[in-house]
Computed example of a mutant assay.
Amino acid sequence: MKKNKLPWENLPIVIILSLFGLLCILPFWLVLAGSLTSESEIASMGYGLWPKHIDISAYTILFNDFGRIASGYKITITVTVIGTLLSLLVTSMAAYPISQDRVKYHSILNFIVLFTMLFSGGMVPWFIVCRRFLHLTDSIWALILPYLANAWYIFLVRNYYRSIPIAMVEAAKIDGASEYRIFFQIITPLSKPVLATITLFISLNYWNDWWLGIMLIDDPDKQPLQLLLRTITSNLQFLSSSSNVNVVSEVMKNMPSEAIKMATCIVTIGPILIVYLFVQKYFVKGIMVGAVKG
């Protein structure tokens, strides 16, 4: 009979994992402390884990125009939710036929998807297609459609689908199930780990994106949160580079530019952590099986 390990025997493992957890938390804590540190303290003593005097001026400046920040949050959350759901649907449905050897021309479809990973038309043709032909300008769809399909995600899901026994699909077809019913009622429930994994990847991509906003959004009121905060930090950098002007120099002297950079990280990082809490139990299994199988 196998004896249960005594608690003290697991103590080295607990200590090692605790230290590793602290090392993971340390960068976040350093960013938080930096956002609450005054500019003069950062200039004289550098970043520290504990600010001598709590200074919330960085957050005050960021939320000075709370209406725009709230609008940026609304746009980014909407884009992330809708984009993640649509991209997950497109990715999973595109991966299913190319994972089945019984599908005619599946090898050609695999090559087409792979080709998009190796070669691209370039930024200028992409911009012309989005602007002139798809008319993706100043629209929420301009922040969603360009990232709707990702070849690497499709291959990741395809490899996971190939790990599912083909006998299950054949048995369902014998029972008269249609392809849609097989996909949504058999394949999809069995693929929760890999679908949860790419859900995290896709949502992070939508949440952190500011590039589409620069390229396709002209209206300042329709800017996503990341682009809005990037604009604020860029303006601060421009002011600091123009410090030869006396008026600007006086303004920048009391401007917590470094703390604002840290504060933007804190402002944007919170909501996306919630997504990770829901998918973390599937994450390792999904990426390992999806990357190795097939």
Rank of each mutant, 00 (worst) to 15 (best):
T84C: 02
S120F: 11
V81M: 06
V79N: 01
H106Y: 14
I69T: 08
Y105W: 14
K104A: 10
M117N: 13
T84L: 06
A94D: 07
L85V: 04
L89W: 09
L86Q: 00
T76R: 01
T60Q: 14
V113I: 15
P97S: 08
K104P: 03
R68A: 09
S92Q: 03
T76Q: 01
S57W: 05
Y73C: 07
I61M: 13
A70T: 09
I108G: 05
D101Y: 09
A58Q: 11
S107T: 13
L109M: 15
I82R: 00
L85I: 08
L62G: 05
F119Y: 15
F63Y: 13
R102N: 02
I77N: 04
G72D: 01
V103G: 09
F119C: 10
T116D: 04
S120E: 06
V90T: 06
G121F: 11
G83N: 04
G67Q: 08
N64Y: 13
D65C: 12
T84Y: 06
G121T: 12
I54P: 11
L114A: 14
S92D: 01
I108F: 12
G72K: 00
Q100L: 10
F119E: 08
T76I: 02
Y73L: 05
D65Y: 08
G83C: 07
S107Y: 15
L85Y: 00
I112G: 08
T84S: 04
L86C: 10
L62I: 15
D55F: 07
T84M: 00
I112L: 15
R102E: 05
T80R: 01
P97A: 12
D101M: 06
Q100I: 06
T60H: 12
Y73I: 06
V90E: 02
P97R: 09
Q100E: 06
S57M: 06
T80G: 02
H106V: 05
Y96K: 05
S87M: 02
I98W: 14
V113P: 08
T116P: 03
F66H: 05
T78A: 11
Y105A: 09
D55L: 09
P97H: 11
L109H: 10
N64E: 14
S71Y: 03
D55W: 08
T60E: 13
V90M: 12
G67E: 05
L118A: 15
M93W: 11
H106W: 14
R102L: 05
P97C: 10
L88M: 13
T91M: 04
D65E: 13
H106K: 13
R102C: 03
S92F: 07
K104V: 08
P51Y: 05
S107R: 15
F119T: 09
S71G: 04
Y59H: 07
A95D: 03
V79H: 00
F115P: 08
K52I: 07
